[in-house]
Simulated assay, not measured.
Amino acid sequence: MTSFKSTKYLPLVLAAAAFTGACQKQASSETTSTQVENTVAAAGQDSTAGKYLSQPLIPGMYTADPSAHVFNGKIYIYPSHDIEAGTPENDNGDHFDMRDYHVFSMDSVNGKVTDHGVALDIKDIPWAGRQLWAPDAAFKNGKYYLYFPVKDKQDVFRIGVATSTSPAGPFKPEAKPIAGSFSIDPAVFTDTDGTSYMYFGGIWGGQLQRWATGKYDSTAAPEPATGNALAPKMAKMRADMLGFDGPVKDVQILDQNGKPFPATDHNKRFFEAAWVHKYNGKYYFSYSTGDTHNIAYAVGDSPAGPFTYKGVILNPVEGWTNHHSIVEFNGKWYLFYHDTQLSGKTHLRNIKVTELTHLPDGTIQTIHPLKS
């Protein structure tokens, strides 16, 4: 989830006003295969649908920032739930004013999608103020953990955690945010040795720049004008997965010469949407470049980095934000992402999936979300 700069996009012509209205209603607790197929068919009647690499997975609801995981042989997706909240648009993304999370599952990629209903509502989080942004999930100790950023009652982003005995929820939130947490976009990676790490941070509306000195500064500029780019953050998780086991550290993203990127290199510097996956013994740190709209990646030998920049996984999508996850399922790798095909509006998005290819040299083949 992100802040944004106000930009006008070419509206997409969808089939009927009734379908557009349906997108703004909450889905029922379970979306049947027939309902999904019928709505996809309606979207497919749009003459512009053929320009997209993939079609929306959940046409009946606005969803974004998909965190995908394989639990119990199924793909579970933990996205943001976009709504038309009526909040005025601004560069800090206040109009991304989400108020709950739904969990979705699939037995196969592009198969039936099940909506398991509301997994967590902002009104049930004791310390929350507003804006539930991009979440993530993890499994350990026989429990499922939902990690989420939300502004507290002082309007400062913190990261919370909620637990459940089911990957679909509902999730019960802890009474307080994770001690030492701040900013947005938590992503939890569990290594093959069982150790878990959280990666997080987002600049501009994500408030990471306000913590540059170690203390919160509401007057900080959205990002530095000189010097090095702001670094994403990481922390080792405690065994109980409810807090950090040690200090929060910078994640180093370096160029081919081992140097950090300058703040002025918007094509490669970190903006938000951290994600980590492991492939052939290497750790892949991927992220959004924000206002230049790439999903870029860097590779390292340790989950703590440093990570050396390698290139772009996903070229810019339609819409202002770009946020993803990467997961292996049945021997293949997949990229989950979002765009604005269903609405044409930056804050009303829809999630998608496409196959991801690791090349023989370990690099990732760049994906083009729009057909030429």
Rank of each mutant, 00 (worst) to 15 (best):
H102F: 14
L230N: 04
I351Q: 04
D124A: 12
A64H: 08
S325L: 05
I83T: 08
D240Q: 04
D91E: 14
Q26K: 11
A175F: 09
F329M: 05
V109T: 07
S28P: 12
S54A: 15
G44A: 13
K268D: 03
W275Q: 11
S28K: 15
T190H: 03
P262M: 04
Q252T: 08
F307P: 00
A134V: 00
P232S: 07
K371P: 03
G214M: 09
P66R: 01
I75D: 01
I58H: 02
K278Y: 09
G281Y: 09
Y144K: 00
L356Y: 03
K352N: 11
E223F: 15
D191H: 06
A175T: 13
P149K: 02
M98N: 13
G86L: 05
A220C: 10
Y62P: 03
K282A: 08
F96A: 10
L208W: 00
G246A: 02
I203D: 14
T163L: 09
T292A: 08
V156G: 07
G305W: 00
D124P: 12
K51D: 10
M61C: 11
D361L: 09
Y101I: 02
A16V: 09
L370R: 13
T7W: 09
E318F: 11
G243F: 02
F96L: 12
G246K: 02
S80L: 04
T20W: 12
N294K: 13
T20R: 14
V113D: 08
G21K: 15
V276R: 06
E30A: 12
D94T: 04
I122C: 02
P306H: 03
G201Q: 02
Q365L: 14
F19L: 14
S218V: 15
R130K: 15
D107G: 14
A162C: 09
K352L: 06
A220F: 04
S67L: 06
F200P: 02
F200G: 03
A274S: 15
Y279L: 11
V161I: 12
G44N: 14
R349G: 01
D82K: 09
A128V: 10
K172E: 13
P135D: 06
V156N: 06
D250M: 02
K259T: 07
K259M: 09
E318A: 12
Q256D: 13
G86V: 07
F157T: 06
I351C: 04
I125M: 05
P224E: 04
N330C: 00
L132Y: 03
P222H: 13
